[in-house]
Simulated scan of single mutants.
Amino acid sequence: MNVRQATQNDARVTGELALLLWPDHAAEELAGEFSELIGNPEAAVFLAFDEEEPVGFSQVQLRHDYVEGTSTSPVGYLEGLFVKEAYRQEGLARELVVRAEQWARDKGCNEFASDCELDNEISLQVHLALGFTEVNRIICFTKPIGEAR
């Protein structure tokens, strides 16, 4: 297995992997978003390969706003992590996160954070196994107040 930082040439393949994580999006939309992220100095994407086959990715960004449970800024934030099912339990997620953490340290971060949905028990277990500590649980609310009702 090989893990490396993504380049612009990897935007489409990263978008295809991301579609497996976020299936409610369009492949072209995700490829465009990853193209922007890869070109952004405050973001990075790391790809895992089995020879030539892309099998996983991590996406990290700097967050300058308040991040729940942290006390410094900026914070490296794990925005996305995915490994194809056939390659899970082999240490790839850990390697992808280690690379994201190192990138964040190199950008001056002293803290690294992430999140998951309240009902995503698999993601919770993965985060805990990767050394994250749960710091809070929230439920967000919204209601229309304008003409869009």
Rank of each mutant, 00 (worst) to 15 (best):
P23S: 02
F82M: 03
E85I: 06
V83K: 05
N120V: 09
V126K: 03
W103A: 08
Y66K: 12
F82K: 10
Q59S: 03
V60M: 08
A26S: 04
D50Y: 07
S114F: 00
L62F: 09
C116G: 04
G69S: 15
I38N: 00
V13H: 14
E68I: 05
L62R: 05
A44L: 15
D115Q: 05
E29L: 06
Y66E: 01
L19R: 00
R63E: 00
C116V: 02
E147V: 06
L128E: 04
S58I: 14
A18K: 11
A27H: 07
G91S: 12
Q125W: 05
A26H: 06
L78M: 14
Y77S: 01
A100H: 13
L81T: 03
I138A: 12
F34P: 05
I139P: 06
T7I: 00
E28R: 07
L17V: 08
T70K: 12
D65R: 10
A43T: 14
L96C: 06
N9T: 11
E51W: 11
A113L: 11
N136W: 15
K84R: 15
V97D: 10
W22I: 00
G56P: 07
I145A: 11
L62W: 14
R88S: 02
F34G: 10
E28Y: 04
E36L: 14
I145R: 14
L92E: 07
N110V: 11
E33K: 09
G39L: 04
L20K: 09
D50A: 10
A27S: 05
T133A: 10
C109D: 08
S114D: 06
I38G: 00
R12P: 00
P144V: 06
W22N: 03
L47W: 13
I139C: 10
C116M: 01
E134S: 09
Y77P: 09
F46P: 14
L37S: 03
P144A: 10
Q8P: 13
R4Y: 08
H64G: 13
V126L: 12
T7V: 12
E68L: 08
A27G: 06
P54R: 05
E111A: 01
R105T: 06
E42T: 09
P144H: 13
G32Y: 02
F112L: 01
A43R: 14
R12V: 02
G80T: 11
P144E: 02
G69M: 07
L128T: 05
E16K: 04
L96V: 06
Q8H: 13
C109M: 08
N120Q: 03
Q8I: 15
L78S: 05
G80P: 04
R12N: 04
G69V: 03
Y77M: 04
N120K: 01
K107P: 09
G15S: 00
